[in-house]
Design a binder for these strands. Structure first.
Lengths: 248, 248
DNA sequence: GACACCATGATCGTATACGATTTCGTACAT
DNA sequence: ATGTACGAAATCGTATACGATCATGGTGTC
């Protein structure tokens, strides 16, 4: 059966946001979108409230909705959140991965490597998502899985429009993927997997922070079991990623 | 100004759910709630969709909404998610806590201790929330903070109706709070704080799992710096908290 | 007696309509 | 020229109305 109108509206708007057709700050007018869809404003309204709950649009009473504008700090906060959640999801999924999963992930990572040669960042990004999805997909906690999914949605909506990747980061990323896969193949305990998965993302976060001249995120995880020295780069007691004051 | 009708509806329904007036499985009929509020079904509908996004109600097309029923595994999954998020939030907040915060938290924990004597589990629960809110409140990442808040909402909605506390757990809990506070007062690095905060909650989770005869959650964090032995109780490579199969 | 089928009622999904609120442009006074 | 007051247009918020869909109970047949 055809999906409901509000479902259609939801997908249309989300698609336009992540594809960049609606750029941050764009005013989402109920009437216009309804006309475009050939439906009334009621389902559109519902769709927009759903997107609000996911952080993709900002909504103000009696004023309307706009595509959430990305503020660098918001982007970084999302990345930090994702580092925590995805690390946990990957650790929980680790014992459930079979050889096929690992082989598939390894293959994806080889593809990513080749993207580096041909300089195809678009494809590289897609593969990166696929790689991680494959690894955290079997996570048995649906709640965490849902939150990770939402995090990625936000990221996609933001990155396409605003941020470029940090120069050297892509190559390092591929290498870190291989390290993570090695751990998984060796049947490493969940805390080690979590540390590797989280720190992989935290490294990206810190690469951004570094170019912005900010201190790194304090949410590094030490690798248990293995040599602890190279997993906890000097403890920085000062807080990083201090939030902007809430706009009064 | 008066809040909008959909806001009123949202608060009414949420309140009825967490207070237990609507117990799990209760059928939320748009028309009835609208009548109770003296408004039409449209705002009620919107409120219910918001609650759905937060996991408090389940919704099915052309059928309606019911208060999310709690399934033990769902409860435990929420608890596990919260352990991860709250651990991170507390670690991020740690460097921003001042002496007042710590003193207040310590005071709350003394109150909790006295609740143990007089056996006042209601008050104990409230204080427990207050204690942790105080500690993760200054977390500079609003996104994580939001997710933690939602997690607690879900917990409140569930616990009141279904679950009793594990016998010995309350007393241990108070002791662990003191350990956490000691760490914070000593200015421990964020990873140590995260480990303590997360494991505190994971211990509760595992107490439930133990009485159910299930293996413990694998998401323990090793305490870095301090003796690593007592923080990582034997690695259990077998997966815990395996999700129920999605109902087909 | 059990199962399949259909009628009926309850409830949801959405369109339309209208009042409420905000925003923006314009005119006027300083 | 700048700031303020007012009015019109745009947009949102919600009520009402009606078609669409699903659950339920009764009836007929095997």
């Amino acid at each position: 059966m055809a999906p409901s109108k509000s479902e259609q509206a939801y997908e249309l708007i989300q698609d336009k946001i992540v594809s960049g057709a609606y750029s941050p700050g764009y005013r989402l007018v109920l009437g216009s979108i309804a006309a475009e869809l050939g439906c009334s404003t009621v389902p559109v309204r519902e769709a927009i409230r759903r997107l609000e709950a996911e952080g993709l649009v900002a909504f103000e009473r009696n004023v309307g909705a706009t595509v959430a504008s990305v503020d660098a700090t918001l982007y970084l906060h999302t990345l930090q959140t994702l580092s925590v959640l995805e690390g946990a999801a990957t650790a929980l999924a680790a014992p459930l991965l079979d050889a096929d999963d690992l082989a598939a992930a390894r293959r994806i990572n080889r593809d990513m490597e080749s993207c580096l040669e041909h300089f195809d960042p678009q494809r590289f990004s897609r593969l990166n998502v696929a790689f991680h999805e494959r690894l955290y997909g079997p996570c048995p906690n649906p709640h965490i899985l849902d939150l990770v999914q939402r995090g990625w949605n936000r990221m996609r909506a933001m990155r396409s429009s605003t941020f470029a990747t940090v120069p050297g980061r892509a190559r390092e990323s591929v290498a870190e993927h291989d390290v993570l896969l090695d751990l998984l193949e060796a049947g490493a305990p969940p805390p080690s997997v979590e540390a590797a998965a989280r720190d992989h993302r935290t490294n990206t976060l810190n690469a951004y922070l570094a170019v912005a001249g900010l201190p790194p995120s304090p949410l590094y995880l030490p690798l248990p079991g293995t040599s602890p020295t190279d997993a906890t780069p000097d403890q920085t007691p000062e807080p990083a990623l201090r939030g902007r004051k809430d706009t009064p």
